[in-house]
């Protein structure tokens, strides 16, 4: 039988591959837990209202706005943040493509852009530049690096699709 909880509840989250058990209040968002409790400050608190995408992380492999997730509801989930995708010495392909294509200026939206792009490629519905733009529209970039962001994502998509084409020959 489920119990009503007014105070802190113990939850276990697997964050970037590490199991973390902590007490959270019902009103703590996943974003706040990641940033303030686990000190993973890659995901950004831009608008805190699900409008900018800077807080995007992967929950069980799916990209979501962590500012709109209550941490208590994500008990048992696997969370991947930008810190879990790659390290400076071993960048994820998407991180490397963002650097190569100069796909940012101030960098504030970049962790969310990259997590979102990784999630989008896993979803498997983007092929063309138009589809990338449409399916990345939940990530705003006030510096206006969109052109280079699309180019970076296109390159990762092409690299990902290349082996399949060779295998088909």
């Amino acid at each position: 039988m489920a119990q009503a909880q007014a105070a802190a509840t113990s939850v276990t989250l697997t964050v970037n591959g590490e199991s973390k058990t902590l007490d959270v209040a019902p009103w703590e968002t996943l974003l706040d837990v990641l940033r303030e409790r686990l000190h993973l400050t890659g995901a950004k608190k831009g608008c805190d209202q699900g409008q900018c995408g800077a807080c995007t992380v992967l929950v069980d492999g799916r990209r979501v706005n962590s500012c709109l997730q209550l941490a208590v509801m994500r008990d048992g989930c696997e969370i991947t943040t930008i810190e879990g995708l790659g390290e400076p010495a071993s960048l994820h392909a998407m991180q490397a493509a963002f650097v190569k294509h100069d796909a940012f200026q101030c960098g504030y939206c970049t962790p969310g852009q990259i997590c979102s792009a990784v999630g989008m490629i896993r979803e498997g519905h983007a092929e063309t530049a138009e589809e990338i733009r449409e399916l990345m529209s939940g990530n705003l970039c006030r510096c206006g690096a969109y052109t280079n962001i699309v180019e970076a994502i296109e390159e990762v998509l092409a690299e990902r699709n290349a082996p399949k084409l060779e295998a088909a020959e």
Binding site: M1, A2, Q3, A4, Q5, A6, T9, A25, P26, W27, L70, V72, M73
Partner: peptide, 19 residues
């Protein structure tokens, strides 16, 4: 955000009764 209590429902009827 205001303060509130949290219940994780384990059945539809439990959820309906709680609300």
């Amino acid at each position: 955000m205001n303060r509130f209590s949290y219940l994780r429902a384990s059945s539809v009827s439990e959820a309906v009764a709680a609300v």
